[in-house]
Simulated scan of single mutants.
Amino acid sequence: MGYLGLKPGETIKCRDRQHMKKVHDELAALGIRSDYLYVKDGKEGTWIIIEPKH
């Protein structure tokens, strides 16, 4: 997947928590800061949210 064009605030829908961890690790390896998101727009699920660079 092409992660390099992601902007802060964008999200990635994940299949499950294992997939979240994998995506989070892949982003970290590219120097992209992200966090886990379990509720989006009032719906529970598994997402990764892109954080701003510091």
Rank of each mutant, 00 (worst) to 15 (best):
43 K>E: 15
47 W>Q: 07
37 L>E: 02
16 D>C: 06
41 D>P: 03
22 K>H: 10
43 K>S: 12
30 L>V: 01
42 G>A: 03
2 G>A: 11
34 S>C: 12
8 P>N: 09
27 L>K: 02
29 A>T: 00
4 L>C: 07
6 L>T: 13
18 Q>P: 03
4 L>Q: 13
28 A>W: 06
53 K>R: 13
29 A>I: 02
19 H>F: 01
1 M>E: 15
54 H>D: 15
29 A>E: 15
15 R>M: 11
23 V>T: 05
2 G>D: 15
51 E>F: 03
40 K>M: 12
18 Q>S: 12
10 E>V: 05
30 L>I: 04
25 D>P: 05
27 L>E: 08
30 L>N: 03
50 I>G: 04
35 D>M: 09
38 Y>G: 07
40 K>V: 05
45 G>N: 06
30 L>D: 04
48 I>L: 06
1 M>H: 14
42 G>K: 02
14 C>E: 04
20 M>G: 06
50 I>V: 15
24 H>D: 13
30 L>A: 04
2 G>S: 14
29 A>W: 04
28 A>I: 00
2 G>V: 10
28 A>Q: 14
9 G>M: 09
7 K>A: 12
9 G>L: 07
31 G>N: 11
45 G>S: 07
37 L>A: 00
10 E>K: 08
54 H>W: 09
36 Y>G: 02
11 T>P: 09
53 K>H: 09
29 A>V: 00
32 I>G: 05
46 T>M: 03
32 I>P: 02
46 T>P: 03
40 K>E: 15
2 G>N: 14
24 H>T: 08
40 K>Q: 14
48 I>D: 01
40 K>S: 13
17 R>Y: 10
9 G>Q: 08
45 G>Q: 03
34 S>L: 01
5 G>L: 13
19 H>C: 01
31 G>D: 04
7 K>L: 08
